[in-house]
Design a protein around this nucleic acid. Structure first.
Lengths: 216, 216
DNA sequence: TCCAAACTGAACTAGACCGTTCAGTTCCGT
DNA sequence: ACGGAACTGAACGGTCTAGTTCAGTTTGGA
């Protein structure tokens, strides 16, 4: 019910460890930290409670380990190499592709629920929220900023504040859907067609503001 | 410790009612729904537990009443009449003022914590989250869209999709700060100077994209 | 093959908390 | 001023949970 198929070659202890993390992730995401019961996590792992406490000496530590693991998995799906962009058309095509991709990856039931979970425990586990922010918006904005500086050098973009500019693109793309889905629930996750339309509008606004005058 | 000075002219029952709501708001905001204890709410209200249950027959109902009340109070602080804007300079000045004002009102420790609280209970009380979204971003975008249509009629703005355009302004302004503060905590609330700078950048981008060509 | 480490299953401690109850007191409208 | 409604304070039932303990079983490396 909560397996991610750990390799059968692992030792028994490793298999149990993975099963506990997987079951705990499911239970925490479904019920939140407070209502998640260690007994249910043990039952769903197919493991005794004793064993759960052998691997994770408290509910707090298990929670931190589980959330960190989920962030690792989510982060692994996002990376990509910086592209070579020669003119306005290539830039626009890249931004459209990037916008669709980042929304498709981020607006996932699991990631949105993880976000809600982390926010709901921001007081008790502030370092988890910091980490999620750093790996999400922080990372995206940083990487985009680096790309923008080369594009400015190439005379494709014109702007003053890199961080502000990259942040504006990010929130033109993500602000509306991420906040709507957070509040209205995962049923409000946009369809691919909606993502494409919204991305087109956001990229148009961005280019109207930051495309270098020579490129128009 | 949690009083909002209910008028002394009210009946005893009304005073107790108000005290319960105020104390419950504080406790729910501090600890979240699950960890909030009815005993502590009663104690902080200066009221017996029996009386709490006389006014609110369950923790659920008390929570809904308290959150609704907080949303009412927050919503009352936002309204304003649609302005008359004649040229580019007036429009720009209005947008700068609007941007600063909406951020100043929304990026408040109480409102941010209310947002976290509602998000953390989105599964159990989806109607509260829907309501908060409708009264927050939904209302702001709707009102701004109505204004934008008159500005288009007046030849000040040029755009295709009203809702998308109003949403873009909203998230250019609010996306970055609201999401950063949600994750990094209320210590990350921007200073007035930061709000002003960020608003200037957002409004510049918006006008670059949507100011009518005749107005440049 | 053998033994230490890991695991099982179940019981148990200790505490929190919702919602109820009760006997007695205070308030307020008529 | 009086009677009913609201309130107090404390206790209690019932349920749930984190974490521990224990006696016995399984596993896997040397």
């Amino acid at each position: 019910m909560a397996d991610s198929a750990p390799p059968a070659t692992a030792t028994r202890s490793e298999r149990k460890h993975a099963a506990i993390v997987a079951a705990a992730a499911a239970v925490f995401l479904e019920t939140g930290y407070d209502r998640a019961s260690m007994d249910e996590i043990a039952a769903r792992s197919g493991v005794s409670k004793q064993t759960v406490y052998k691997h994770f000496s408290s509910k707090d530590l298990l929670f931190v380990a589980v959330v960190t693991e989920m962030m690792d998995q989510a982060g692994a799906a996002v990376h990509q190499a910086p592209p070579q962009l020669r003119d306005r058309a290539e830039l626009e095509a890249f931004l459209l592709d990037y916008g669709v991709r980042i929304q498709t990856v981020a607006l996932t039931p699991g990631l949105m629920q993880l976000r809600r979970l982390v926010i709901s425990e921001v007081q008790r586990f502030p370092e988890l929220a910091r980490e999620l922010y750093a790996r999400g918006a922080g990372r995206a904005i940083g990487a985009m900023g680096a790309l923008f500086e080369t594009l400015r050098d190439d005379g494709l973009l014109a702007f003053e504040d890199v961080a502000e500019t990259a942040s504006q693109l990010n929130w033109l793309l993500m602000g509306e859907p991420i906040n709507r889905v957070m509040m209205l629930g995962n049923e409000a996750i946009p369809t691919p067609a909606e993502i494409k339309r919204h991305t087109g509008a956001a990229v148009a606004t961005f280019l109207a503001a930051f495309l270098h005058p020579d490129q128009r």
